[in-house]
Amino acid sequence: MGFEPIKILYALGTIFIIFNVGMLIQGIVRKIGARVGKRYGIRFYQPYIDLIKNYVMRSNVTHGVMFYLGPVFRLTGGLGVFLFIPIIYGSQYFSNFAFAGDVVLVLYFIFFGSLGMALGAGEGGHPYSAIGVSRGLAQVTAAEIALVIAVIGVGIQYDTLSITEMVAAQQGGIANWTMVTNPLLTILAMLAFLGAMGRSPFDVVLAPQEIPIGPPTEYHSTFLGIMQTNRSIFPMAKTILFVNLFFGGATNWIVLILKIFIVYMWSVVVGVVFPRFRVDHSIRWWYKYALPLGIIAIIVTTLIAG
């Protein structure tokens, strides 16, 4: 598996699909959220309109080069993460650029966008941006504990770090999924997923009420459009990672979208039920609950893997 120019076209195709999936899921999720609150809610295609509107806003202000590049970093990060994950198991073409690296690459590339975005927000000069970034980084590093342990656990279980091989090991029915073979690790990973998605109770970063929307507080118009685009790809990419690692991956698009939706709903359901953690609470929570659980999970996994 190496690089061929045709893969760029396939990559664009997968990006297109997942972008729409992401858009629709956003709309649907908000709709569901509204229904939980006994509202009618937005139209499911509202995210598209908002996105178009933002792209066609007439005026923009920029605080400087880094501010300008922040969203670019963000979207590059999102797209990169997505493209480094093999999407459809068994499909040469929908594995995108997974040949460039394994799960470790994905794990660290996640930060590319966040870091760039944080820098852009920083140059905005708004104190709320800085506070938001500070919270965000703190929470992400804490939440990553669970993610890192989960990934290492999967690595131990399947004796590989290649996502493709991990998915391969889970083929042949639900009984082979990590979810079944190693439930403890999956629980941990699902906690990590909550942290990764930044929904309630871990949404103190954006916190619209106290630090008006945190890092992107100065972003608007086209910049915001780019970030919205990212928002429909990046969470999908992360979800796909979890699907691949713990839920057997997918051999075709239908199954994939279904799994994405179900896994994604997990964070939504938790989000509508639980209130927000304060940031120090959330850090402590990860160290207090996720870390011990992770250690137990690692020990159990070691035993399982023999």
Partner: peptide, 29 residues
């Protein structure tokens, strides 16, 4: 024995995406 990684490709892919996204933003903005 566990995984693989290609620094050159990562650099090129990241750079490529970055340039494309930047041009898109610059075109709009």
């Amino acid at each position: 024995i566990y995984g693989h990684w290609n620094g050159f490709l990562i650099m090129m892919i990241t750079g490529g995406i970055f340039v494309i996204v930047f041009l898109w933003l610059y075109f709009l903005n």
